[in-house]
Amino acid sequence: MALTLTELANPTRFMGLVTRALPYLAGATVLLFAVGLILVAGAPEDYQQGMTVMIMYIHVPAAWLSMFTYGMMAASAIGTLVWRHPLADVSAKAAAPIGAAFAFLCLFTGSLWGKPMWGTWWEWDARLTSMLVLFIMYLGLIALWRTIEDPTRAARAAAVLILVGTVNLPIIKFSVDWWNTLHQPASVFRMDGPTIDPSMLWPLLVMALAFTALLVTLHWMAMRNEILRRRVRALGLMAAGGAR
């Protein structure tokens, strides 16, 4: 049972591990969501925002997780470019749609939160704008993976783009912050207070944990699919070569 990192990096070993671990991971995810939602139901109203603060328990974890997923993809991209490990690209490619889904969820709930709080569906608030840019970058990456047919070529191209994004994201964030303060000085109602009460912090942390467990579960399942897809592709090529 003792799995070293090298063994884990073998696709077949990884598939075995996923098959064994998946029931526990899925169970933990469901359990964490159950506990999180019960805690959210018991959480107090915000004195300023009323019950709309409940949206925060989805919005904020989705935002965290979409950024965390990008970080994970950046680590995978280094694995692809430096060690040329096939599993690294499988990891990055499987993570992209999940990260895009979290970013979408963050934008969607942010918009729903903005309507009662700010009075508009969309505010060019620095955070929302940065999240929109992240969402577009996810979509661009997925488009790149879908356009280049050869997996190893697509892997390298995507890895380069992910790392360029990692370098540029802080610059984009800074420029958007700067642009936003230039256009509308401090009129924006801040979504988060400077401090958060423990009675709201605990439900938020449990929900964040639940979303993280969901990410790991879905990511491993998607990685398994990707490995299978590559085997199908390789076998299909072999079959075509044999028929010739």
Binding site: E45, G50, M51, T52, M54, I55, I58, H59, A62, P97, I98, A101, F104, L105, F108, T109, L112, W113, K115, P116, L214, L218, M221, A222, R224, N225, L228, R229
Partner: peptide, 29 residues
Amino acid sequence: GPHAGFIVVSYAAAALTVAALVVWILVDH
């Protein structure tokens, strides 16, 4: 509260997004 609709839609959207991801991954598998 007065903004119940927004909260319900938010949670429904989250559930739908996650469900769509799960279904897509299972069908793909």
